[in-house]
Design a protein around this nucleic acid. Sequence first.
DNA 1: CTCCTTATTGAAAATGGTTTCCATTATCAA
DNA 2: TTGATAATGGAAACCATTTTCAATAAGGAG
Lengths: 156, 156
Amino acid sequence: MPRGFGHGGPWWHTRFRGAGFRITVPRQAILEVLSKTQKHLSAEDVYMAVHRICPTVGLTTVYRTLELLVDMGLVFKFDFGDGRARYELALGPKGERHHHHLVCTNCGRVIDYTEFIDDEIELLQQTEKGLSKKYNFDITHHLIQFYGLCDKCKGR
Amino acid sequence: MPRGFGHGGPWWHTRFRGAGFRITVPRQAILEVLSKTQKHLSAEDVYMAVHRICPTVGLTTVYRTLELLVDMGLVFKFDFGDGRARYELALGPKGERHHHHLVCTNCGRVIDYTEFIDDEIELLQQTEKGLSKKYNFDITHHLIQFYGLCDKCKGR
DNA sequence: CTCCTTATTGAAAATGGTTTCCATTATCAA
DNA sequence: TTGATAATGGAAACCATTTTCAATAAGGAG
Protein backbone atom coordinates (compact mmCIF):
# COMPACT_ATOMS: atom_id res chain seq x y z
CA MET A 1 0.00 0.00 0.00
CA PRO A 2 1.25 3.46 -0.85
CA ARG A 3 1.36 3.83 2.93
CA GLY A 4 0.60 6.55 5.40
CA PHE A 5 -3.06 6.95 6.18
CA GLY A 6 -1.96 8.16 9.58
CA HIS A 7 -1.79 11.88 9.14
CA GLY A 8 -1.88 13.32 5.70
CA GLY A 9 -3.61 10.31 4.23
CA PRO A 10 -2.60 8.85 0.88
CA TRP A 11 -0.30 10.77 -1.42
CA TRP A 12 -3.04 12.48 -3.39
CA HIS A 13 -4.72 14.03 -0.31
CA THR A 14 -2.17 16.81 -0.34
CA ARG A 15 -2.90 17.61 -3.95
CA PHE A 16 -6.60 17.82 -3.21
CA ARG A 17 -6.32 19.93 -0.08
CA GLY A 18 -3.85 22.21 -1.77
CA ALA A 19 -6.26 22.83 -4.61
CA GLY A 20 -9.16 23.39 -2.26
CA PHE A 21 -10.98 20.21 -3.18
CA ARG A 22 -12.70 18.08 -0.60
CA ILE A 23 -11.76 14.52 0.11
CA THR A 24 -14.89 12.47 -0.23
CA VAL A 25 -15.88 8.84 -0.13
CA PRO A 26 -16.62 8.62 -3.85
CA ARG A 27 -13.32 10.23 -4.75
CA GLN A 28 -11.41 7.87 -2.51
CA ALA A 29 -13.19 4.90 -3.99
CA ILE A 30 -12.50 6.01 -7.54
CA LEU A 31 -8.82 6.60 -6.88
CA GLU A 32 -8.60 3.25 -5.14
CA VAL A 33 -10.05 1.52 -8.17
CA LEU A 34 -7.73 3.31 -10.54
CA SER A 35 -4.67 2.58 -8.45
CA LYS A 36 -5.38 -1.12 -8.29
CA THR A 37 -5.46 -1.86 -11.98
CA GLN A 38 -3.19 -1.74 -14.96
CA LYS A 39 -6.10 -1.74 -17.34
CA HIS A 40 -7.60 1.02 -19.43
CA LEU A 41 -10.94 1.52 -17.74
CA SER A 42 -13.94 3.26 -19.25
CA ALA A 43 -16.14 5.43 -17.05
CA GLU A 44 -18.60 2.58 -16.92
CA ASP A 45 -15.85 0.17 -15.89
CA VAL A 46 -14.83 2.48 -13.08
CA TYR A 47 -18.44 2.87 -12.08
CA MET A 48 -18.95 -0.86 -11.80
CA ALA A 49 -15.75 -1.39 -9.85
CA VAL A 50 -16.53 1.47 -7.51
CA HIS A 51 -19.99 0.09 -7.03
CA ARG A 52 -18.52 -2.97 -5.33
CA ILE A 53 -16.73 -0.77 -2.79
CA CYS A 54 -19.45 1.80 -2.33
CA PRO A 55 -22.76 1.03 -4.05
CA THR A 56 -24.22 4.48 -3.56
CA VAL A 57 -21.78 6.25 -5.86
CA GLY A 58 -23.47 7.35 -9.06
CA LEU A 59 -22.22 7.30 -12.62
CA THR A 60 -22.45 11.07 -12.78
CA THR A 61 -19.98 11.39 -9.94
CA VAL A 62 -17.63 9.00 -11.65
CA TYR A 63 -17.63 11.16 -14.77
CA ARG A 64 -17.17 14.31 -12.76
CA THR A 65 -14.36 12.91 -10.68
CA LEU A 66 -12.54 11.48 -13.67
CA GLU A 67 -12.68 14.85 -15.37
CA LEU A 68 -11.35 16.49 -12.23
CA LEU A 69 -8.50 14.02 -12.01
CA VAL A 70 -7.64 14.54 -15.66
CA ASP A 71 -7.59 18.30 -15.13
CA MET A 72 -5.33 17.84 -12.12
CA GLY A 73 -3.01 15.71 -14.20
CA LEU A 74 -3.42 12.67 -11.96
CA VAL A 75 -5.16 10.66 -14.65
CA PHE A 76 -4.74 10.31 -18.40
CA LYS A 77 -7.71 10.09 -20.72
CA PHE A 78 -7.43 8.15 -23.96
CA ASP A 79 -9.50 7.54 -27.02
CA PHE A 80 -8.96 4.20 -28.66
CA GLY A 81 -11.65 4.74 -31.23
CA ASP A 82 -14.42 2.61 -29.81
CA GLY A 83 -16.60 5.51 -28.81
CA ARG A 84 -15.86 5.55 -25.11
CA ALA A 85 -13.05 7.27 -23.27
CA ARG A 86 -10.50 5.25 -21.27
CA TYR A 87 -8.74 6.34 -18.13
CA GLU A 88 -5.57 5.37 -16.35
CA LEU A 89 -3.58 6.71 -13.45
CA ALA A 90 -0.78 9.00 -14.60
CA LEU A 91 2.02 7.83 -12.31
CA GLY A 92 4.48 10.47 -13.35
CA PRO A 93 5.62 11.65 -16.80
CA LYS A 94 8.61 9.36 -16.97
CA GLY A 95 7.76 7.53 -13.78
CA GLU A 96 7.19 3.84 -13.45
CA ARG A 97 5.64 2.16 -16.41
CA HIS A 98 5.31 5.16 -18.68
CA HIS A 99 4.03 3.64 -21.88
CA HIS A 100 2.39 4.18 -25.22
CA HIS A 101 -0.33 2.18 -26.90
CA LEU A 102 -0.70 -0.28 -29.72
CA VAL A 103 -4.33 -0.62 -30.79
CA CYS A 104 -5.89 -3.40 -32.84
CA THR A 105 -8.32 -1.77 -35.24
CA ASN A 106 -10.25 -5.00 -35.60
CA CYS A 107 -10.89 -6.31 -32.09
CA GLY A 108 -10.02 -3.20 -30.13
CA ARG A 109 -7.35 -4.88 -28.05
CA VAL A 110 -4.85 -2.46 -26.59
CA ILE A 111 -1.26 -3.36 -25.76
CA ASP A 112 0.90 -1.13 -23.60
CA TYR A 113 4.49 -1.05 -24.67
CA THR A 114 7.48 0.46 -22.98
CA GLU A 115 10.25 -0.89 -25.19
CA PHE A 116 11.02 2.01 -27.41
CA ILE A 117 9.87 4.71 -25.07
CA ASP A 118 13.29 6.12 -24.31
CA ASP A 119 14.10 6.95 -27.90
CA GLU A 120 10.61 8.22 -28.46
CA ILE A 121 10.73 10.47 -25.44
CA GLU A 122 14.01 11.91 -26.56
CA LEU A 123 12.74 12.72 -30.03
CA LEU A 124 9.49 14.04 -28.65
CA GLN A 125 11.26 16.41 -26.33
CA GLN A 126 13.30 17.77 -29.19
CA THR A 127 10.20 18.15 -31.29
CA GLU A 128 8.31 19.77 -28.44
CA LYS A 129 11.07 22.27 -28.01
CA GLY A 130 11.07 23.11 -31.70
CA LEU A 131 7.31 23.38 -31.89
CA SER A 132 7.05 25.48 -28.74
CA LYS A 133 9.45 27.98 -30.16
CA LYS A 134 8.08 28.10 -33.68
CA TYR A 135 4.39 28.28 -32.83
CA ASN A 136 4.70 29.86 -29.39
CA PHE A 137 2.82 26.98 -27.79
CA ASP A 138 3.13 25.78 -24.20
CA ILE A 139 3.16 22.06 -24.82
CA THR A 140 1.81 20.09 -21.89
CA HIS A 141 1.60 16.57 -23.20
CA HIS A 142 1.62 14.37 -26.25
CA LEU A 143 -0.08 11.33 -27.64
CA ILE A 144 1.45 8.50 -29.60
CA GLN A 145 -0.48 5.49 -30.71
CA PHE A 146 0.08 2.80 -33.29
CA TYR A 147 -2.77 1.08 -35.05
CA GLY A 148 -2.93 -2.21 -36.86
CA LEU A 149 -4.07 -5.79 -36.70
CA CYS A 150 -3.07 -7.96 -33.76
CA ASP A 151 -1.85 -11.50 -34.25
CA LYS A 152 -5.28 -12.96 -33.69
CA CYS A 153 -6.95 -10.66 -36.19
CA LYS A 154 -4.42 -10.50 -39.00
CA GLY A 155 -5.45 -13.89 -40.34
CA ARG A 156 -8.77 -12.66 -41.66
CA MET B 1 -3.41 12.49 -61.85
CA PRO B 2 -6.12 14.94 -61.06
CA ARG B 3 -7.29 15.18 -64.62
CA GLY B 4 -9.38 13.38 -67.16
CA PHE B 5 -13.04 12.83 -66.55
CA GLY B 6 -13.03 11.49 -70.08
CA HIS B 7 -12.59 7.79 -69.52
CA GLY B 8 -11.45 6.62 -66.13
CA GLY B 9 -12.66 9.69 -64.30
CA PRO B 10 -10.73 11.19 -61.40
CA TRP B 11 -7.99 9.22 -59.70
CA TRP B 12 -10.22 7.65 -57.07
CA HIS B 13 -12.69 6.17 -59.55
CA THR B 14 -10.35 3.28 -60.13
CA ARG B 15 -10.15 2.54 -56.44
CA PHE B 16 -13.92 2.53 -56.20
CA ARG B 17 -14.52 0.38 -59.23
CA GLY B 18 -11.81 -2.01 -58.17
CA ALA B 19 -13.44 -2.48 -54.79
CA GLY B 20 -16.86 -2.93 -56.35
CA PHE B 21 -18.26 0.34 -55.05
CA ARG B 22 -20.47 2.51 -57.15
CA ILE B 23 -19.61 6.03 -58.16
CA THR B 24 -22.47 8.22 -57.10
CA VAL B 25 -23.30 11.89 -57.01
CA PRO B 26 -23.05 12.18 -53.21
CA ARG B 27 -19.68 10.44 -53.16
CA GLN B 28 -18.33 12.68 -55.87
CA ALA B 29 -19.53 15.76 -54.03
CA ILE B 30 -18.01 14.63 -50.75
CA LEU B 31 -14.66 13.87 -52.33
CA GLU B 32 -14.75 17.19 -54.12
CA VAL B 33 -15.29 19.01 -50.86
CA LEU B 34 -12.51 17.13 -49.13
CA SER B 35 -10.06 17.69 -51.95
CA LYS B 36 -10.64 21.42 -51.99
CA THR B 37 -9.71 22.20 -48.41
CA GLN B 38 -6.75 21.99 -46.12
CA LYS B 39 -8.96 22.16 -43.05
CA HIS B 40 -10.00 19.47 -40.61
CA LEU B 41 -13.67 19.12 -41.36
CA SER B 42 -16.26 17.55 -39.11
CA ALA B 43 -19.03 15.46 -40.64
CA GLU B 44 -21.34 18.42 -40.18
CA ASP B 45 -18.84 20.69 -41.95
CA VAL B 46 -18.68 18.31 -44.86
CA TYR B 47 -22.45 18.06 -44.90
CA MET B 48 -22.85 21.83 -45.11
CA ALA B 49 -20.24 22.20 -47.81
CA VAL B 50 -21.71 19.35 -49.83
CA HIS B 51 -25.12 20.87 -49.42
CA ARG B 52 -23.99 23.83 -51.51
CA ILE B 53 -23.02 21.56 -54.37
CA CYS B 54 -25.86 19.13 -54.07
CA PRO B 55 -28.60 20.03 -51.59
CA THR B 56 -30.27 16.65 -51.62
CA VAL B 57 -27.39 14.79 -49.99
CA GLY B 58 -28.25 13.77 -46.46
CA LEU B 59 -26.14 13.80 -43.33
CA THR B 60 -26.47 10.04 -43.05
CA THR B 61 -24.84 9.60 -46.42
CA VAL B 62 -22.03 11.91 -45.40
CA TYR B 63 -21.31 9.78 -42.35
CA ARG B 64 -21.52 6.57 -44.35
CA THR B 65 -19.29 7.85 -47.10
CA LEU B 66 -16.70 9.23 -44.72
CA GLU B 67 -16.54 5.88 -42.97
CA LEU B 68 -16.14 4.15 -46.29
CA LEU B 69 -13.34 6.49 -47.30
CA VAL B 70 -11.58 5.95 -43.99
CA ASP B 71 -11.85 2.20 -44.43
CA MET B 72 -10.42 2.50 -47.92
CA GLY B 73 -7.54 4.54 -46.57
CA LEU B 74 -8.38 7.58 -48.67
CA VAL B 75 -9.29 9.69 -45.68
CA PHE B 76 -7.91 10.05 -42.16
CA LYS B 77 -10.16 10.43 -39.17
CA PHE B 78 -8.96 12.38 -36.14
CA ASP B 79 -10.16 13.10 -32.67
CA PHE B 80 -9.06 16.43 -31.26
CA GLY B 81 -11.02 16.01 -28.08
CA ASP B 82 -13.98 18.27 -28.79
CA GLY B 83 -16.48 15.48 -29.17
CA ARG B 84 -16.69 15.38 -32.93
CA ALA B 85 -14.53 13.50 -35.39
CA ARG B 86 -12.51 15.40 -38.00
CA TYR B 87 -11.66 14.22 -41.48
CA GLU B 88 -9.03 15.02 -44.03
CA LEU B 89 -7.90 13.57 -47.32
CA ALA B 90 -5.01 11.15 -46.89
CA LEU B 91 -2.82 12.15 -49.82
CA GLY B 92 -0.35 9.34 -49.34
CA PRO B 93 1.55 8.16 -46.26
CA LYS B 94 4.62 10.23 -46.87
CA GLY B 95 3.09 12.08 -49.77
CA GLU B 96 2.66 15.78 -50.15
CA ARG B 97 2.08 17.67 -46.96
CA HIS B 98 2.14 14.76 -44.58
CA HIS B 99 1.76 16.38 -41.20
CA HIS B 100 1.02 15.94 -37.55
CA HIS B 101 -1.10 18.06 -35.23
CA LEU B 102 -0.63 20.53 -32.44
CA VAL B 103 -3.84 21.02 -30.49
CA CYS B 104 -4.70 23.87 -28.12
CA THR B 105 -6.50 22.35 -25.17
CA ASN B 106 -8.14 25.65 -24.37
CA CYS B 107 -9.60 26.99 -27.59
CA GLY B 108 -9.40 23.85 -29.70
CA ARG B 109 -7.27 25.41 -32.41
CA VAL B 110 -5.34 22.89 -34.43
CA ILE B 111 -2.07 23.62 -36.16
CA ASP B 112 -0.64 21.31 -38.77
CA TYR B 113 3.10 21.07 -38.68
CA THR B 114 5.50 19.44 -41.07
CA GLU B 115 8.79 20.66 -39.66
CA PHE B 116 10.02 17.72 -37.68
CA ILE B 117 8.18 15.10 -39.60
CA ASP B 118 11.24 13.55 -41.20
CA ASP B 119 12.91 12.68 -37.92
CA GLU B 120 9.63 11.58 -36.48
CA ILE B 121 8.89 9.33 -39.42
CA GLU B 122 12.29 7.75 -39.16
CA LEU B 123 11.89 7.01 -35.49
CA LEU B 124 8.34 5.80 -36.00
CA GLN B 125 9.38 3.39 -38.69
CA GLN B 126 12.02 1.93 -36.42
CA THR B 127 9.53 1.66 -33.61
CA GLU B 128 6.93 0.15 -35.88
CA LYS B 129 9.37 -2.46 -37.00
CA GLY B 130 10.26 -3.34 -33.43
CA LEU B 131 6.68 -3.46 -32.30
CA SER B 132 5.53 -5.50 -35.28
CA LYS B 133 8.08 -8.14 -34.52
CA LYS B 134 7.66 -8.25 -30.77
CA TYR B 135 3.89 -8.24 -30.65
CA ASN B 136 3.23 -9.80 -34.04
CA PHE B 137 1.14 -6.83 -35.13
CA ASP B 138 0.55 -5.61 -38.66
CA ILE B 139 0.91 -1.90 -38.07
CA THR B 140 -1.08 0.15 -40.55
CA HIS B 141 -0.77 3.67 -39.22
CA HIS B 142 0.13 5.83 -36.29
CA LEU B 143 -1.02 8.91 -34.50
CA ILE B 144 1.08 11.67 -33.01
CA GLN B 145 -0.38 14.75 -31.48
CA PHE B 146 0.94 17.41 -29.17
CA TYR B 147 -1.31 19.26 -26.76
CA GLY B 148 -0.86 22.55 -24.98
CA LEU B 149 -1.82 26.18 -24.91
CA CYS B 150 -1.54 28.30 -28.02
CA ASP B 151 -0.08 31.79 -27.88
CA LYS B 152 -3.48 33.38 -27.58
CA CYS B 153 -4.56 31.16 -24.69
CA LYS B 154 -1.38 30.88 -22.64
CA GLY B 155 -1.88 34.34 -21.11
CA ARG B 156 -4.74 33.28 -18.87
C1' DC C 1 -18.10 18.95 19.47
C1' DT C 2 -21.61 21.66 16.92
C1' DC C 3 -22.87 24.87 13.47
C1' DC C 4 -22.79 26.77 9.03
C1' DT C 5 -21.22 27.60 4.44
C1' DT C 6 -20.93 25.64 0.22
C1' DA C 7 -18.60 22.02 -2.43
C1' DT C 8 -20.27 17.65 -3.72
C1' DT C 9 -23.49 14.26 -4.85
C1' DG C 10 -27.10 11.34 -7.32
C1' DA C 11 -31.28 10.63 -10.03
C1' DA C 12 -33.44 11.95 -13.91
C1' DA C 13 -33.64 14.50 -17.93
C1' DA C 14 -31.28 16.65 -21.65
C1' DT C 15 -27.69 16.75 -25.17
C1' DG C 16 -25.61 15.84 -29.39
C1' DG C 17 -22.74 13.25 -32.41
C1' DT C 18 -23.30 9.05 -34.80
C1' DT C 19 -25.79 4.84 -36.28
C1' DT C 20 -29.71 2.09 -37.58
C1' DC C 21 -34.13 1.21 -40.07
C1' DC C 22 -36.47 0.77 -44.10
C1' DA C 23 -38.90 2.15 -48.08
C1' DT C 24 -37.34 4.51 -52.28
C1' DT C 25 -33.94 5.59 -55.83
C1' DA C 26 -30.10 5.18 -58.86
C1' DT C 27 -25.87 2.68 -60.62
C1' DC C 28 -24.10 -0.19 -63.98
C1' DA C 29 -23.36 -5.00 -65.89
C1' DA C 30 -25.69 -7.77 -69.11
C1' DT D 1 -33.29 -0.91 -71.86
C1' DT D 2 -33.60 -3.76 -67.99
C1' DG D 3 -32.99 -6.02 -63.66
C1' DA D 4 -30.44 -6.98 -59.46
C1' DT D 5 -28.98 -4.68 -55.73
C1' DA D 6 -25.93 -1.09 -53.89
C1' DA D 7 -26.80 3.39 -52.24
C1' DT D 8 -29.61 6.97 -50.37
C1' DG D 9 -32.21 10.04 -47.09
C1' DG D 10 -35.42 11.10 -43.43
C1' DA D 11 -36.82 9.72 -39.11
C1' DA D 12 -36.05 7.25 -35.18
C1' DA D 13 -32.88 4.97 -32.26
C1' DC D 14 -28.50 4.83 -29.82
C1' DC D 15 -25.57 5.81 -26.21
C1' DA D 16 -21.69 8.07 -23.98
C1' DT D 17 -21.49 12.17 -21.65
C1' DT D 18 -23.34 16.51 -19.55
C1' DT D 19 -26.67 19.36 -17.24
C1' DT D 20 -30.18 20.35 -13.78
C1' DC D 21 -31.47 20.78 -9.22
C1' DA D 22 -32.72 19.52 -4.69
C1' DA D 23 -30.52 16.90 -0.98
C1' DT D 24 -26.21 15.73 1.41
C1' DA D 25 -21.88 15.99 3.67
C1' DA D 26 -16.86 17.94 4.18
C1' DG D 27 -14.36 20.67 7.05
C1' DG D 28 -13.23 25.43 8.90
C1' DA D 29 -15.07 28.60 12.43
C1' DG D 30 -16.54 29.22 16.92
